[in-house]
Structure formats: C-alpha cells, structure tokens
Write a protein that binds this DNA or RNA. Structure first.
Lengths: 356, 356
DNA sequence: GTATACTCTGAAAACGCTTTCAGAAAACGC
DNA sequence: GCGTTTTCTGAAAGCGTTTTCAGAGTATAC
C-alpha cells in the first residue's frame, strides 16, 4: 500500500478519497460547498489516515497564523496569573493560539532577535515595559495589530490600550485613609521605573492629598517595585531612617505583603500603628492578616478585553483607542476598618448554629 | 525602485546583496561558511530592508518549529506562575518559543481540534490531567517528544516525567505534626480527582500515620481541590458535621489559605486549636498569619528541568525516565512552632538598633 | 430547446524558506 | 604544472497547504 512512514498529507487524503487536494482543503476549511457524498468520503479518509494538517503549510499559504503573541517583561507576581488566564481563555474562545514571550533575557541580549512579531503572529499583546518606542513605531507603521496593556502609546502612535482606572482607584484608597482613618502621613511605594500604573497611582495619591490640604512630602515616597522583597527593604529603610508615617499605600498587593512583613518585624501594629493598603486585589489579598484593604482591578477581564480588541484589529476593523476599566474599592481590615459586617454576622450565626 | 509594499523576502535580500537566495539562507542560519565579504553584504541588505524571515516558511522547509508546547488543565492558583516562569525562562535560553494551551474549554468541546501537537511544536510539556491516555499513546507511538509534569505515564508508555517528592514531603509534614506538636487527628484535604501529586501526598500522610500507630480515619479525608474556595467549604462542612480534628494537612498552599479562612471564621485558633500545613511553598505562604508551615517544592526548577528533558528528546537523545525533585520542609508558625529564631533574633537586633 | 446562470471540481500556481546537487574557483600535493 | 581535494556558490527541487482560474455539469429562465 501507500503506507509510507511519513505522516499523511493532504495529498494522501485526496488519493484515498478519490478527489483532488483542492476539494480536501475545502472540506477542511468549509470555505466552499462540496458535494455531500464527496465530503463524507474526505472526512472518512481523514479519519482513517489520522490526518492532521501541517500548520506551517497552512500559514505559509494563507498568510494567517491564527496565533496571538503576548509579550511581557517578566513572569512574576500574583498579578500575572489572572491576567494570563483571561488572555488564554479569550484567545481560546476565538480559536487562536497563544505564544508567550518574556523579555527578561532579551533585554540584556538585544541581538537575540525577537521571534514574536509580524510573521509569527497575527497580532500582539504588549504588556507595559516590554517593547521600546522604536519597536512599537515599527509595528505601527506596518499596520500590524497591536494592543497595549497598562501602557499608553507614545503620542504619535494611536495604538489601542487596555488599562484600568489607576488614578481613581488610588484616590479612593487615599481618601478613605484620610477621611475615615484620619491618616496624614501616608507613604507611597512606587512601582518599577517608568511603570504607568504606578505613575497614575501616584497621581491619584497626590491629588487626594491635595484635596485634603495635606502637603506632599517627598520623604514619604519610596520604591516598592511591585515586589514584596523590594517593598520590604524600602519600609525597613524608612523605619531605619526614622521617618514618621501612619499609613502605607503599597503600590500593589505584592508590595503590600512586603510592607506587612517589614512592619511586623519592626513590631509596628497594622492597622493601629500603620494602616496598609494595596492595589489589584490579587487572590491572596484577603488572606493577609489583617486582610488587605485594596482596590479591585478586573485583571482577568483586562486580558479578555485585550484579546477582543486585537481581534478587531486583526479583522481589519476599528478598535477602541482606550479601554479604561473601572476599579473598585475593597475595604477589608488593614486600613483600620472592622471585619466586613456581612462576614462577621455570618460568622456569628454560623458559630451559634454549629456550636452545640 | 523595487519598493513593493510587501514585506521583504529572502529573494529581495538576495537581489539587494547580489547573491543567491541560498547564500542568504546560509548566512541567516550559519550552516555553512560564506565568504566574509558576501556575508557582510547580505547582513547589510537584511538590515536595510528590515528583513525578518517568515517562520512558517522556515518551518515548512526545515520541518522544525523551534517551538515547545505547554498543555495544562487550567491557569489558576499560585502554583502556576513560578512553574511557567521556569518553563519560559529555560525555553528562552535554548532559543525556543513557547506555545500555551489550556484545556479548560477543550474538554467540554472535544471536537475543537487541539492545535498543539506534532505539527505546531517540536515537543510537548504536558501537565497532569491535561491529556487522556489515548492521546498520550498516540503521541508516543509517533515518537513525538513529550515530557509529563507531575504525572507518571500509563504503564505501557515510557514517557519521561518530572515530578517532586510528594510522599516524602507529606510524611515530613505529618511526622512533624505528630512528633513535635502531638497532633493525632489530622485532616487531609485531597487535591483534584485523579491528581497524582495528591495521591502521593495522601500516601505519605497514611504512611506517617501508620508509622506512629495512629489508625487511619476516613472521616478525616475530604476534598480540597488545590483551591481555597473548595477547601474553605470542606472545612466548614467538617466543622458543621462536628468532626473532631486538631490539625489539617491542606493538600497544597492554596487550599491551606481556604482552611485558614474557615477556621478563623469559626473562631478556631491556628495553631493552638488546629495546626495547619500546606504544600508547595508558593510565594504567599509566608504571608499567611500565622505563617504557613509547608513543604518547599522547587516549582520553577521543575519547569526548567522539563524543558531540558524535552530538549534531549527533540535532539534525538535519551531523556531521564523519572526526575524526582527533592522537597524540603519549611517550618513556620502554622504548625505550632515559634517564629523562626533567625528571623526573630534579627528582628530583635533590628529593633534595638533602630529604636532610639 | 437554447441561452444563461449557478454549483461544484481539479489543475496549477503561489507562499518563502531550506537543502541537495553539481559546478566553479581556489588551494593543495607531488 | 597537472591531477586532486577543498571551499564556496547558485540553480532548482521540494515542504504541504490555500487559492485562483477556468471548465464541466446541472439547474433555471424564457
């Protein structure tokens, strides 16, 4: 027989089904109607031969990769998982593959040509701090579908952005700290250099201060890097420097965890001595003790939306220039509020009904 | 000029550099020496034309995709991020792309042909509970490079596995609970159905019990799903059922978090009333209160090693049939131990030197 | 019953690379 | 100097699909 040990190609299927390869291709893609009987023969042949079309050949011929690329600076932090989850889920729904590329090494070794880009993917999701302006400009000039995550594009380029209401979220947090808990000396821990989320959170922080006539004090600003270790070190240093503060806005939840550790190690009570708030509401935020007051960012939804927008672009449609997702204050205990009433009532009822 | 609006191909470069396309290909891949002067011309032309080789064409011609596929059941939990980090980093180091595919939707819709596999990737990393036996068998028969993560293959197939010392880790935990903290009624929260890590952890749990002549009590086994919500519900139910226990081995750290919540809600003190231990030592484990005693699994290293092994396979070499990574007991406070002495000493010193 | 319009089909031309093959040129051995 | 290697190079043949093009039937309109 023709049982070569090569995997079957479309030609084998065609021969087996006594049709042309064009017809096989057509039933494969459903592009054009095929006579029912022949279509059945083809389907049968594909089954028998265990035919799986070669992606590369398809891509080469059709010029579409059916793949979305995701570029991020590095894979770390509690933030990352929900976001990828959203992206992957949505990509899957629209039947696209997902190619992931982190820049951690590439930056140091720039000659290492990035394989992501206009020929491996139909569209790109670019997380903040991953690509520099010139690279973005090049892709944009090529009219290549790109969507930015948590990063507004350089002025000249109108690349769609998905991001969240950082400023409002931060302001809500700081307002709460000032108005409800009467904090005045609030530390802000900045995120990584040039990180836009951090920029806007700081903006919200400053505006909230200003709105309450609290003068801005540069001594209360430090670097947290959206990372618990860095935040830990920063707070330790502030303590060492004898800087006086009664609250910390940690920049994000990961950093908040580091703040918790530094404060506890130093014997400061949270929230009595120092209130601490984070940002993102990552899964573990509720599990810090005291439970972390933070701002809920719809991380997973950001991922989904990004895929939706890049799909528009890939389909040649218009995409939304800016998608700004609402954030929501999540009050727990690290700000000084009592445990959520619903939970405690439930707790009491639960206890009374179970303790015999 | 010949400034078509199509992106440049190897032919354009060849023309520009006045050489044949074969020569261009050769300097591109460095397969065969090329006269220095010509090579330079080619490189120049590539630069000027901003030439980027089409991956699909390369793949089709060379039959190698330079891509590793990762298949997992779903993207969730704190465990996921470090693992992906390891995989991505190592893939990057050996200059491979990474294609990610989660099965969450595919399972419900099996006709949705999985695009990962023998034609999109040169090798596959398969996380536990992602592919069924028949699919594994097919890939194995094709001699396709596959490495399993946290899952031993069906008997007949000798597919390399990377996993961790679950049984020993669990036993260490239980021994500690019994010997140091004199716990006798230890709950075990199982992971997802058919999850091998869970199986071995239970094995370790049972053996440790047996070694101390503590009878196994089926009432102390419940489902935790490696997930905080599920663990929360399970413990709540046990409390409701009036089951008596003095410790919980949560199956993994995510579940441990859920256990914490259920216990606190019910007013049980950790570790006084109930000791709690987890497994994995995910980043947030140290931030639970009390800090979680757990077992450190080298998650990131598992990812790296998996890529190394699949690389061997892809290179036609032999791979290690079983890679069993050592786990390590991480004693913190949720078992009943005092805060780590090194930390508290440091803390005291720190305090005394900073408090003026 | 013929002209016109559809519907379906196969041949063949891309798609943009890698790789084989054989030849030209240069280097070497004696 | 004249064969014999060795080194480099270009022509051309794939790789396995999709897609265009034109043609063969078949249905529809009159």
């Amino acid at each position: 027989m023709h049982s070569k040990n090569h995997p079957p190609t479309i030609a084998d299927v065609a021969e087996h089904a006594r049709v042309s390869i064009a017809t096989v291709s057509r039933v494969l893609n459903g592009t054009v109607p095929v006579q029912a009987e022949k279509a059945e023969r083809v389907r049968l042949a594909m089954d028998e031969l265990q035919f799986v079309p070669r992606t590369a050949a398809r891509v080469l011929a059709s010029k579409r990769t059916h793949t979305i690329g995701l570029i991020l600076p590095e894979i770390s932090g509690a933030f990352f998982s929900p976001m990828l989850r959203g992206i992957e889920a949505q990509a899957h729904t629209i039947d696209y593959d997902l190619l992931i590329h982190s820049m951690h090494a590439t930056l140091s070794n720039p000659h290492h040509s990035s394989p992501l880009g206009e020929h491996n993917t139909d569209g790109l999701l670019v997380f903040t701090n991953s690509l520099d302006e010139s690279q973005l400009a090049r892709l944009h000039k090529l009219n290549f579908p790109v969507v930015l995550l948590h990063q507004t594009p350089p002025d000249s380029l109108n690349i769609p952005v998905i991001t969240i209401e950082n400023k409002d979220g931060a302001a809500m947090l700081i307002n709460h700290l000032i108005e409800i808990h009467e904090r005045r000396r609030i530390v802000f821990l900045q995120g990584p250099q040039g990180h836009e989320d951090s920029h806007w959170r700081e903006r919200g922080y400053r505006e909230a201060l200003e709105a309450h006539q609290i003068p801005f004090d540069a001594a209360l600003i430090a670097s947290g890097g959206f990372d618990d270790e860095e935040a830990f070190t920063s707070i330790q240093q502030m303590l060492l420097d004898g800087i006086d503060f009664d609250a910390v806005f940690a920049g994000d939840d990961d950093a908040a965890a580091g703040v918790f550790r530094a404060l506890k190690l130093a014997g400061r009570l949270i929230p009595q001595d120092v209130a601490v708030v984070g940002f993102d509401d990552v899964p573990f935020a509720r599990y810090l003790a005291p439970a972390l007051t933070t701002v809920r960012a719809p991380i997973e939804e950001v991922g989904r939306e990004a895929v939706r927008q890049v799909k528009h672009l890939m389909d040649g449609e218009q995409a939304q220039a800016l998608t700004l997702m609402r954030t929501e204050l999540v009050i727990r205990e690290s700000c000084g509020c009592p445990p959520a009433s619903s939970e405690s009532i439930q707790s009491v009822e639960f206890l009374s009904s179970t303790r015999r």
